[in-house]
Design a protein around this nucleic acid. Structure first.
Lengths: 139, 139
DNA sequence: GTTACTGCAAACACTTTGCAGGAGA
DNA sequence: TCTCCTGCAAAGTGTTTGCAGTAAC
């Protein structure tokens, strides 16, 4: 479920979307990035990579990638952040430094939560944010 | 952990905050409300209850209640929503109708998630959103 | 040659802020 | 009385939209 350049390109094609320079750049910039960048941060990096790239295009492309399930968005305090890890997992957010860390979501937790949902509902995605203090700030 | 008028008033006093008409109204409006209203929705109801009550006051009071841990905020698509249930629980969000339902968070899930967090971190709150289709929309 | 995408700038929705007058203790 | 709070209006922030020109296929 981790974002990979080639699969992402294929998925775009499959969805009938053109492989523009900008879409390529957003994907390549996001692959392997575990820092959970904001749209602003991505736009900053991308305009270095693709001179003249606009903020609204960054928004549009990110939205498409989320729609395709290739990327996750994390809503952490004000600005939206992005994560190339499309799988269900836990986001540990530090209240001190604001950093976001990924943590694995135990299968037992998934089944427990899904079984707690109302009978007849179909859960397709879990967004889990654990807030507290990270090991670094605790010291 | 469910919001209760008297305890809320006590907590405000304890925090050195005055018991204004507006604060009273926000608390009373929120007690027992399971509909996860937006700030706008609350402001609408409150201006009926307290004529002339301003939107910015609603924002300020809600922020205080969240700070005191009496109320939770749920960040579901655009507008912030509020929940008088201060305990960790699951929010089931329907992608069709947008409604939010509360579900119990199994203790097994809590321990599983907390143990998955980085060693040395202290998790104080879990925000869990389960997205999918509610029983009503599935039919 | 078509079609769909980008960049721009303006609009938008939600939230925050500063301050003077007014209510709470 | 003294302090804190409210309401107003204005500013702020992050995001969306419409459209003409342009790149992808």
């Amino acid at each position: 479920m981790l974002l990979d350049t080639n699969t992402a390109f294929e998925r775009l094609r499959a969805a009938g979307l053109k492989l523009t320079v900008q879409r390529r750049a957003v994907i390549e910039e996001l692959v392997g990035d575990e820092s959970h960048p904001t749209t602003e941060e991505l736009a900053r990096r991308l305009s270095a990579r693709v001179p003249g790239m606009s903020l609204s295009t960054v928004y549009k492309v990110l939205h498409e990638l989320v729609e395709l399930g290739l990327v996750r968005q994390v809503d952490a305090a004000g600005a939206m952040r992005f994560d190339p890890n499309g799988a269900d997992h836990v986001h540990v957010v530090c209240d001190e430094c604001g950093d976001i860390f990924d943590a694995e979501l135990p299968a037992t937790a998934v089944t427990a939560i899904k079984s707690a949902a109302p009978k007849g509902s179909a859960i397709t995605r879990l967004d889990i944010v654990a807030r507290g203090v990270c090991p670094h700030c605790a010291a």
